[in-house]
Write a protein that binds this DNA or RNA. Structure first.
Length: 1043
RNA sequence: GGGCUUAUAGCUCAGUUGGUUAGAGCGCACGCCUGAUAAGCGUGAGGUCGCUAGUUCAAAUCUAGCUAGGCCCA
């Protein structure tokens, strides 16, 4: 016996119950045990940053991960189920700084690096626990006690191994370069960091400055800059040698300016062009720098150099060059032997030797600089510009460009190899390949150092005497090389500050080498995981069994240059092969209206809110049904739509259980052979098995959104055709083979659906399974997730039968359409429907299954016809508006003529697009409107060559039947109001006017059968229910009571 | 400026290798059902498939250009 199932269901409550059940019955471990000898399937988890609670955007990726893990679990695969946490990096430091109220690196130093690093570790531990609990709530089945942490010793030391390999190939170098720099972090930003979310639309003050020529004191170069603070570091001006320049005479003040010919529109006041020249004519001109008086500028020669990138699209065509403040500027300094001045410290403050600027922040000195330039008479004009400017992804502060020493991996030696490796991977969507290749073609060297505290300790030891540096490849090697500090370090993780105490002997000069103070780029931490978490170094056999991963899935936009990139780079260096075979990318989660979710905008939905209010199965359905290539609009509105679909499944299940209990149906004992099933059952089974087949294909190709589309269609068909068409088979009394067939089929439909959907909707399918299957079959697997994934029986996919039912459904749809058009409700029986099919085959199907159509449409007869001319005629009318404009006064003649012509002939001509001659007037077919006019008593509907024609004449007999059906419906309502059970039999007493007696008499059996009643005399006292009912225009008094 | 990508109904999206009159859900209108019922179902309206040109017997689909948006790189 089944547990009764209410049609009202609380999915969230149900999910909590199933979580408890899985926990208590240890289902996940039973699954692992069951599959331990199965073929391996290697999923590799991209680590989630353990820095905050999980968001609904994380839940998308984690749902996909879980879905494919669960599917492969049902295929019997042995898996690792290892989740990963990303632990190290600036994002954690930033949150900890916030907690502690720190403003800068100085605060951290004061607080103590050891305590600070510990606080970072603590934060990671705290949030990894929060995320673990949230993931469990999502139904994410992982080996939670065995999650990997990128801060682990093994992870860090495996990166050391990688870096040493790089060094052996000569790829590690210290770069002296201008880098984008965040004054708030006190650190450089790598390309990757800025590219992700760095650029903002900002408005800045700009200034046009006059650089007077040394040789000609009344002539000046006009130079434009958007970063006035860098003028203090100017050492050159650049022109494009091919471009056209002009020398203009300023009328107001007799002096001359040089600028690009195309940019004279920036000039103020009257001017006159006195000379045209090429950029090359300006080369080598010496000029007075804008801040020659600063001590830092002492001895610097300023002159004009050439640069191809100079354009005349904005500014003046003469570019201010400050090699200490710009990347390109710095590169130019190497080619042109110009001076390099680096003006600011790590917080963006001017260094010594900058006079009034010293100690001031470079981002706050605009007005002082402008005043100074005006005083010196070299300010031409001040303006402003709105442009995209790089900012810090954490602080939002504007970046400055600063000359620093950073450590890099040279990517040139592996660029070609990496591109080959990319080709080994299956990218979903396929354009992922092109995106990754584009990034690889353009990638610069990888900056791996950061002047911060919490992260990988870069294993680079540099000699204080000779500058020679060495890369250490692991803990043992370090121990062997250590000449100082090992004792203090022993027992600590390889993090700052303890690691910094260790000194080694320089292998070149024998002096002491110390570790560089920098920490590593966090993408090193994540990129190494196919090696570290699979124990590449510590258990190589194990690694061989699991590497490469079969599958990874992550959010697309950033990862081409982040995780995918670091995975590929590191694996190319270590093994020259791809670390994963297939990658499925998904886009971003937006709010319901497509806007970014932001806490501050109030449109963000925290994970726990969504889980508690919509339920995680609904969320999982939403994630899996969506094409992952595009952004997902997440919200309670879309969730409601999905909830309704889930209710359809639930209601089918509840319907089955209700009736199976009444009839004590047991699917394990009362099986029905395929040959004994009726057409409808066989059709349902054909659908179901086709679904299994397609579901496997979709899971195997990682396209679950296709699966979900098919599922939604199947669910609709099963609910609105199979169950509805079969309802009477369940209601009828007795337990014949037809009824058993219905139960058996519906049981199989439900069981198959929940088995196929179990990976996607793990909770509701489990809940259904526990009752549907386990209540009657104690030998079945203990959980829906411990079953084997269903196998399609292709012999049951009867395509002819599928076609057959399709045409029946079509005929029914058209019949309904006709009824709607005639405004006659289904309850009123009609005598006949004529139907025009398109092939002999279809006619055969209709004849064979005519009963189903008749029942659905409540019609007495269906007739197949070929020629519909007896029922409808075509009628041609002119399009008065368009034709009237053309022929004007001839209209009446045309109307008359058209009326007299045979509609059929006109329709045919119009169809062919031929002009018609009507009473001597040529009429364009576009000016004729063809209508189908039904003859009397006829309603016709046409669709794609099919025609359904309803005879809407209602005889007395049909009318009577309609009345009785009305009465039946009222009695059914009474039964329900009285809380009778659906199978209670009743005594019925009617007091009706004479006019209805005959109608009742004619349909007596129908009335009694439908209401489970027998006529009986009941006095008003005995009657449980008495009601006056309006039927037609008469009143009937109904008394009923249970017997 | 370069790469990738998108443009289909009021909204969110399908449309596999070109092939009858381009589909679904939601919303809307009208209605049905009342033994899945604070549910369920049907019918309908609504689209020159961003624009232009080309290839083809045939283009939402292929090609080129243009316009607008997104992501990325300069």
């Amino acid at each position: 016996m089944y547990k009764p199932v209410s049609s009202k269901v609380d999915f969230v409550k149900l999910e909590h119950e199933q979580l408890k059940f899985w926990e208590k019955a240890d289902i996940f471990n039973k699954l692992r045990k069951k599959n331990e000898n199965g073929p391996r399937w290697s999923f590799l988890d991209g680590p989630i940053t353990a820095n905050n609670p999980m968001g609904v955007h994380h839940a998308w990726g984690r749902t996909l991960k879980d879905v494919f893990n669960r599917y492969h679990g049902m295929l019997g695969h042995y898996m690792r189920y290892q989740n990963g946490f990303d632990c190290q990096g600036l994002w954690v430091e930033v949150e900890v700084e916030k907690e502690l109220g720190f403003k800068s690196k100085t605060d951290i130093e004061t607080y103590g690096v050891e305590k600070f690093v510990q606080a970072c570790k603590d934060r990671v531990i705290k949030y990894s626990k929060v995320q673990t609990e949230q993931s469990k709530r999502l139904g994410y089945w992982m080996d939670w006690d065995n999650s990997y942490y990128t801060m682990s010793d093994e992870n860090n030391y495996t990166i050391w191994h990688f870096l040493k390999k790089c060094h052996e190939r000569g790829m590690i170098y210290k770069g002296h370069d201008v880098m984008p720099w965040c004054p708030r972090c006190g650190s450089a930003m790598s390309e990757h960091e800025i590219a992700t979310e760095g650029y903002k639309e900002l408005t800045h003050k700009t200034v046009f400055v006059k650089f007077y020529l040394k040789e000609k004191p009344d002539e000046a170069l006009l130079v434009w800059t958007t970063t006035p603070w860098t003028l203090a570091a100017n050492t050159a001006a650049a022109v494009n040698v091919e471009m056209d320049y002009v020398k203009v005479e300023a009328k107001a003040k007799v002096e001359y300016y040089y600028l690009a010919k195309e940019l004279t529109n920036i000039l103020t006041g009257d001017y006159k062009i006195v000379e045209e020249l090429k950029g090359k004519d300006l080369l080598g001109l010496k000029y007075h720098g804008p801040f020659d008086e600063l001590p830092a500028q002492k001895g610097v020669e300023h002159f004009v150099i050439a640069w191809d990138e100079v354009s005349d699209s904005d500014g003046t065509g003469i570019v201010h060059i400050a090699p200490g403040c710009g990347k390109e500027d710095f590169a130019l300094s190497k080619e042109n032997d110009i001076a390099i001045i680096a003006p600011i410290d790590e917080f963006g403050n001017y260094l010594e030797n900058y006079d009034f600027l010293t100690g001031k922040n470079c981002q706050e000195v605009n007005s002082e600089i402008f005043d100074n330039l005006k005083e010196k008479g070299i300010c031409y004009k001040i303006d402003q510009i709105t442009h995209r400017y790089p900012t810090c992804w954490r602080h939002g502060t504007e970046l400055v460009f600063r000359l620093v020493d950073e450590w890099f991996i040279s990517m040139e030696p592996i660029r070609e190899d990496m591109m080959k490796v990319v080709g080994q991977i299956s990218w979903i969507p396929a354009w992922g390949y092109d995106r990754e290749m584009d990034w690889l073609r353009n990638m610069g060297d990888w900056m791996i150092s950061k002047k911060r505290y919490w992260g990988l300790s870069l294993p680079i030891w540099q000699c204080g005497e000779c500058g020679h540096f060495e890369v250490i490849g692991g803990k043992e090697e370090l121990k062997a090389r250590a000449v100082a500090g090992w004792e203090e370090f022993e027992g600590h993780s390889p993090h700052k500050p303890h690691i910094d105490n260790i000194e080694i002997k320089c292998s070149k000069c024998g002096a002491k080498s110390k570790r560089i103070p920098d920490v590593g780029n966090p993408w090193l931490d994540a990129g190494i995981v196919p090696y570290s978490t699979m124990h590449y170094i510590t258990d190589h056999d194990y690694w061989k069994q699991w590497f490469p991963a079969d599958f990874i899935t992550e959010s697309l936009p950033g990862q081409f240059r982040n995780w995918f990139y670091s995975l590929l780079a590191m694996s190319t260096v270590l093994e020259n092969t791809a670390p994963f075979k297939t990658v499925l990318g998904h886009a971003l989660v937006k709010d319901e209206t497509g806007k970014d979710m932001h806490k501050s905008a109030g449109n963000a939905i925290p994970f726990h809110d969504a889980a508690d209010h919509m339920g995680v199965d609904v969320m999982r359905w939403m994630y899996t049904a969506h094409n992952p290539e595009y952004n997902l609009n997440f919200g309670y509105g879309p969730a409601d739509e999905i909830r309704k679909k889930m209710l359809t499944l639930w209601n089918m299940y509840s319907f089955y259980v209700t009736y199976a209990d009444i009839d004590r149906y047991d699917p394990t004992k009362q099986k029905v052979a395929y040959t004994k099933l009726n057409e409808l059952d066989k059709w349902a089974l054909a659908k179901i098995h086709a679904f299994i087949k397609e579901a496997r294909e979709d899971y195997d190709s990682f396209r679950v959104e296709r699966l979900m589309r098919k599922f939604e269609m199947l669910l609709e068909e099963m609910s609105n055709w199979y169950v509805r068409r079969s309802r009477r088979r369940f209601w009828k009394s007795g337990n014949d083979i037809d009824k058993m067939g219905a139960y058996y089929t519906l049981y199989n439909i439900l069981r198959t659906m929940i088995s196929v959907l179990a990976p996607i909707l793990p909770f509701v399918t489990e809940d259904i399974y526990q009752n549907l299957v386990l209540s009657v079959d104690k030998k079945a697997p203990q959980s829906v997730h411990l079953q084997e994934f269903p196998v399609a029986d292709e012999s049951l996919i009867d395509t002819e039968l599928l076609d057959k039912i399709d045409i029946i459904i079509k005929a029914v749809e058209m019949g309904r359409s006709a009824r709607n058009k005639a405004n006659i409700r289904t309850r009123q029986p009609l005598a006949n429907m004529l139907f025009k099919a398109k092939s002999e085959k279809e006619k055969g199907y209709i004849l064979e299954l005519a009963d189903q159509i008749k029942e659905e449409l409540n019609i007495k007869n269906i007739t197949l016809v070929d020629d519909i001319r007896d029922y409808v005629e075509y009628e041609a009318k002119p399009n008065f508006v368009t034709l009237g404009k053309k022929i004007g006064k001839q209209m009446p003649l045309a109307i008359k003529g058209l009326k007299e012509m045979d509609g059929e002939t006109v329709a045919a001509a119009v169809q062919r697009g031929e002009a018609l001659m009507v009473n001597g007037i040529s009429i364009d077919p576009a000016d004729i409107q063809i209508a189908m006019r039904e003859k009397e008593h006829i309603v016709a509907v046409e669709d794609r060559g099919y025609v359904a024609i309803l005879d809407i004449r209602i005889s007395e007999e049909l009318k009577a039947e309609g009345l009785v059906r009305d009465l039946v419906r009222h009695i059914q309502t009474l039964r329900k109001e009285a809380d009778f059970n659906v199978d209670d039999r009743i005594a019925l007493n009617l007091k009706s006017p004479d006019s209805l007696t005959e109608a009742l008499e004619l349909n007596r059996d129908y009335l009694l059968g439908e209401t489970l009643a027998e006529f009986a005399e009941i006095s008003e006292q005995e009657s449980e229910i008495r009601k006056e009912i309006n039927v037609g225009n008469e009143i009937i008094i109904v008394n009923i009571k249970r017997i």
